[in-house]
Design a protein around this nucleic acid. Structure first.
Lengths: 192, 192
DNA sequence: GTCTATAAGCAGATAGAC
DNA sequence: GTCTATCTGCTTATAGAC
């Protein structure tokens, strides 16, 4: 077995355990057992436990941060730009072999140990609130506090992610489109 | 200071720490420090750390489980029964001095240690899915998997709870009504 | 009802052989 | 690249004085 496979397997098994037990409650011994290696072997692939969660996080957040910022700056209806972003986000996440909902649901980034990751996430949330504000100003969305809008988008994204992790996804693109539609329903003003 | 006050204060401070750090990551020393007592004094009020989280959980779940089941069996439009339930749920949670979102967001009930609590929550979710199914069958709600509907209701409830914990709530009833309206928007079919 | 002292166990991480 | 053995520190919880 090549190194890269073990590395990938660590990320997959760790994400599933983080989802089930939480980051702090998941021990490096449990991760190692799921990967079928002994606990100290983990430290050949990652310098520490924190680095595992950071890599899973980066996998989903780095590109998302760029794309949401782009969506903020583009022209056109805010609801369409948000919809496009959500379709990309959901289809990307649905394709990943890791249990991505673990990251946002879990306890990891709430502790001060992960202040840097939390700051990145905060910047992402700021762009999302900006985009929602644009939609409220243009009359596309109902008038809610953009912060509440952001919390709803984030929580519904996680809910949809958890749903897709339970049922068998055959067409990630279709389920991503349905998810984006559902999220926008929650605060898009009726057109007719 | 009376015993009951210290007990209550432990529940409040513990819930805030559970929300911030997660159940497993919050140490009994940290809880004790927040309450201004020493760590072993906690064990005079609660037999163990688990009992603290169980009490916070029971505070919100016991009555909720009875009420959602009643809502399932009553007559009338399912959307109205769900709305009434959500208004009660949100206004009750918004009035509590504990950080109630901690319980559902957190890592606590995912571990096997809390299998009993998880079973109670599962029964609650079952009733919620039943009520959503009724609304889909009657044409009040859009046609989605009831499981996805349940995940959305639960995640939006938590989002609204987190929102109310951030901003200062002056009128719990009004904000509860607005929250229930917003949650139902997500999958109620337009009437006109 | 709160304290100090401490037990018993488990965590993440390192050393060094193979 | 994986192993066995082990260190150090921190965790929950108990014992028993006041």
């Amino acid at each position: 077995m090549e190194t890269v496979d073990t590395r990938q397997e660590i990320l997959i098994q760790a994400s599933r355990l983080f989802k089930k037990l939480g980051y702090r409650a998941t021990t490096t011994r449990e991760i190692a057992k799921a990967v079928n290696i002994k606990q100290p072997s983990l430290f050949h692939h990652f310098p520490n436990k924190k680095a595992i969660v950071e890599e899973i996080f980066s996998l989903s957040l780095n590109e998302a941060a760029v794309r949401i910022e782009e969506a903020c700056r583009r022209d056109g209806p805010a609801s369409e730009r948000l919809h496009q972003y959500l379709v990309w986000d959901l289809s990307t996440l649905h394709r990943m072999p890791m249990a991505m909902s673990a990251i946002y649901t879990g306890d990891a980034l709430k502790s001060e140990e992960f202040a840097e990751l939390a700051a990145k996430l905060k910047a992402f949330y700021h762009s999302l609130e900006d985009l929602i504000s644009q939609g409220i100003d243009s009359g596309e969305f109902v008038e809610i506090d953009p912060m509440l809008g952001r919390l709803i988008v984030a929580s519904m994204t996680i809910a949809h992610l958890e749903y897709a992790e339970e049922v068998t996804v055959t067409d990630p693109d279709r389920i991503a489109r349905e998810g984006a539609d559902l999220i926008l329903r929650a605060f898009r003003r009726e057109q007719n």
